[in-house]
Write a protein that binds this DNA or RNA. Structure first.
Length: 280
DNA sequence: TCGCAGGTGGTCG
DNA sequence: CGACCACCTGCG
């Protein structure tokens, strides 16, 4: 944004089943930071904003956002049209285990994120830890992305387009500290640049560095495929703990999720994931 | 020093 | 086709 440009706040009331900490700390995104007042500041969809939520009144306040941006970007990003109360009720019925998990993450929402950003983020996430994932994404954006704006004294950059990354070699990304994932980023960027964005699970798993776990994350967070059920180390732990499934038997877990959660698998995964992360 | 962290690809049997 | 295992990097 230009300096001196008027900063606007937008408010939306009547929001239920919504909690910023549950949303931004349930493993689905890496570019939102919690402020001391409990609000979150981050960059997504080419915009930098701060979000604050008054849970008593159900009022969401987005700073650096006008009505147009809210309606065109954040409404969809935050999945505000979906009835999460109904989803939680359906998942809780006849499943006291899930009911318990949901009670810890009542305000979770599955963000509808930009597909390319989701691909890059979860390629980086594999066999990695959250602080380093965040650092890698920031390094990559700062060095190869576009300057989006300065907000509250900090500069923000977008995740570089596939076109940009496709023209690089893995060694060009050395300063980003991606390790062996640099090759995955470059090769996947080339593939996407040449053949377009993936639309199906099959096209996702053809990408270099995208296995079943990463593919399910991309499908869930970037493509709106809500029956996806990403099985990572945390989901394995929680399904062993709560449902007694062998921690090494991913197929049994996928079958269980398909049978018990069906088209709501992605939501169920988020409640389980948040529960085990909170209780570890 | 060494194991580990939101897994995957390569290589065996 | 299922079971290993190396892999960048930074931290405890």
């Amino acid at each position: 944004m230009k300096s001196g440009e008027a900063m606007s706040k937008f408010q939306k009331d009547g929001i239920k089943d919504f909690d910023l900490e549950h949303i931004f700390d349930c493993g689905q995104c890496f570019r939102w930071e919690r402020e001391e007042d409990g609000s979150y500041t981050g960059i997504a969809m080419g915009k930098v904003v701060n979000m604050a939520f008054d849970s008593d009144r159900g009022v969401l306040t987005i700073d650096n956002c006008d009505r147009k941006d809210f309606e065109e970007i954040w409404h969809r990003y935050l999945d505000l049209d979906r009835d999460y109360g109904q989803i939680k009720k359906t998942l809780s019925d006849e499943d006291d285990v899930m009911k318990k998990a949901i009670s810890h993450g009542t305000g979770i929402r599955i963000l509808r994120q930009d597909l390319w950003e989701t691909i890059v983020s979860f390629l980086i996430s594999q066999n990695n830890n959250i602080p380093r994932i965040k650092g890698c994404i920031e390094n990559l954006s700062r060095e190869f992305g576009d300057f989006v704006g300065e907000y509250r004294g900090k500069e923000y950059y977008s995740i570089p387009e596939a076109k940009v990354l496709a023209g690089l070699s893995p060694s060009d990304l050395g300063s980003v500290k991606l390790g062996y994932r640099a090759r995955y980023i470059v090769e996947t960027a080339s593939c996407v640049f040449e053949k377009g964005m993936p639309n199906t699970m099959e096209q996702l798993t053809e990408l270099c560095g995208v296995g079943p776990k990463v593919a399910n994350c991309i499908a869930l967070f970037g493509m709106g495929k809500y029956d996806s059920f990403p099985i990572d180390v945390w989901v394995r732990r929680v399904m062993n703990l709560l449902y007694g499934i062998d921690e090494n038997d991913k197929k049994a877990m996928a079958d269980f999720a398909d049978k018990h959660f069906g088209e709501l698998g992605g939501f169920a995964q988020q409640y389980l994931f948040y529960y085990i992360r909170e209780n570890s």
